[in-house]
Design a protein around this nucleic acid. Structure first.
Length: 460
DNA sequence: ATCGGCTCGCGCAA
DNA sequence: TGCGCGAAGCCGAT
């Protein structure tokens, strides 16, 4: 078989546009969207592999869009830090790097200028990036493949939307031996040489300047973007926080979580890197198992949810039992009603909820256990489940560094719409049979006073 | 401290 | 067709 044929039969690869390679082309283009890294990146490795077979160089293209919904200076800064660190690593491997920002960031135009042999993309189940990929696919006259570098088990192997963790768990577990293996790195055989007239911004320039993005939410001081920063946080997690994770992760007043989600969101770290490091760590099995459940099963359930459910960010995603029960309670009286502004400003009667909201606004990160409580209370304190879903999505996407990510949508869908969950009795006002979380019980499961004090003193 | 009941539907065994 | 069981639930009984 033609070795190129063999390459695209990899389960990670989706052929978006087939046909013969353009042998007159200048290079293999890798349009780097989700997997913004040089290590453990199956999409980049597929591009290198194909380029070596074609005896051509590889050039990576990064587009800085000007209008991503709910993104702002906070998320763009983290993204830009990652991009800056990326460029020298690519150059060291002999791979070209072209960076363009809005309004001159059109990937279609870049491909026209380069005249590629083949274009490689990566995967991300969200609506907007998927639309961009489809639009490029229509535009191109050369083959276009996308490579799923976002998850350990390639998303398309799960075939359909999975009902719950219970149904996805055995399917993923059965494929882990095959897919949870180190991503082999190959050496590009033909170095990229700069091309006259092929415009690129310097990654060291302030390429965020002039973008029409919201500047109302500023960068966070505590976390910096980039693979190196992510790896150093990972090492610290393995050493200091993974031991005791199984028990400690549900205590927002303790430091037992990884905080790696922003690095996963921007692709500065890949799931393989983290999963293999955790699996190999010398800590109790139950701690490793509890973390891998989050990283692999829960995260890939969230990706599967967004990939197969077009309503992933609104109430339309819910199962019939959940819609039925929410509809029956649509007219229930709400004891507290807050506007989006009051919620945003952490002006509710509930000090625990306010502290969680403040932690998110100030630090760009809210503890996972409180994210559930936070979203469920928005359901309780707004006029309708539709409105609650929309507010939770906006606040999450605006303030969390890991916002605009499948994990966030799946979490909100779980809390407000019973997604991946089941009905629970007894029925309550507003919630119906959606699982309820009470203030009394939630705040007694950990030292909530210490948590509130911590947020108020240094905002998480 | 621990347990059962609340309640739904998937996926598999039969 | 029946049965087991599930992301973090709550609450009251023991």
């Amino acid at each position: 078989m033609d070795p190129l044929e063999k390459l695209h039969q990899d389960a990670r690869v989706t052929v978006r546009r087939g046909g013969p390679m353009n042998s007159e082309g200048r290079a293999v283009v890798y349009w780097m969207q989700r997997a913004q890294r040089v290590i453990d990146n199956p999409a980049l490795e597929t591009a290198v592999h194909a380029a070596n077979l074609l005896k051509k160089p590889v050039v990576v293209f990064v587009s800085v869009v000007g209008d991503y919904p709910n993104a702002n200076l906070r998320s763009y800064t983290f993204f830009a830090e990652g991009i800056r660190a990326l460029a020298p690593q690519l150059v060291r491997r002999g791979i070209g790097f072209v960076l363009r920002a809005w309004p001159a960031n059109d990937v279609n135009r870049f491909c026209d200028e380069v005249n590629p042999c083949l274009v490689i993309g990566d995967e991300n189940p969200l609506r907007k990036p998927e639309h961009w990929r489809q639009s490029l696919s229509k535009h191109l006259r050369v083959p276009f493949w996308t490579v799923d570098a976002d998850v350990i088990v390639p998303g398309k192997l799960l075939l359909k939307e999975q009902y719950s963790a219970r149904t996805i768990r055995p399917r993923i577990s059965a494929l882990l031996d095959e897919f949870l293996v180190p991503v082999a790195e190959s050496r590009p055989q033909v170095r990229w040489r700069s091309v006259k007239g092929l415009h690129s911004l310097s990654p060291d320039s302030d390429f965020l300047q002039g973008l029409p993005i919201s500047r109302s939410v500023g960068p966070v001081g505590s976390l910096r973007g980039g693979t190196a920063e992510g790896l150093s946080l990972l090492r610290r997690f393995l050493r200091e926080r993974l031991p005791g994770y199984a028990e400690g992760r549900n205590y927002p007043d303790r430091e037992h979580t990884s905080r790696l989600s922003p690095y996963l969101h921007f692709g500065h770290l890949g799931p393989h890197t983290i999963a293999l490091a955790v699996r190999g760590a010398e800590v109790p099995t139950e701690d490793k198992a509890a973390f891998l459940e989050q990283l692999i099963i829960r995260r890939e359930l969230a990706v599967n949810f967004c990939r197969y459910n077009p309503h992933y960010d609104n109430l339309g995603c819910a199962e019939p039992w959940a819609l039925r029960t929410l509809r029956q309670h649509a007219r229930d009286e709400r004891e507290h009603l807050y506007t989006e502004r009051q919620l945003e400003n952490a002006e509710t009667h509930d000090p625990l909820w306010n502290a969680a909201q403040k932690q998110m606004v100030v630090s760009g990160w809210m503890h996972g256990y409180l994210r559930m409580y936070w979203a469920k209370k928005i359901l309780e304190w707004t006029r309708s489940p539709e409105e609650a879903f929309a507010i939770a999505v906006r606040l999450n996407d605006r303030y969390e560094l890991d916002g605009r990510d499948p994990n966030g949508y799946a979490g909100i869908a779980w809390a407000i719409a019973g997604k991946h969950d089941r009905a629970w009795g007894p029925e309550r006002p507003v919630y119906g049979k959606i699982r309820y979380m009470s203030h009394a019980s939630t705040s007694s499961k950990f030292n909530s006073k210490a948590y509130i004090a911590m947020v108020n003193s240094r905002a998480g």
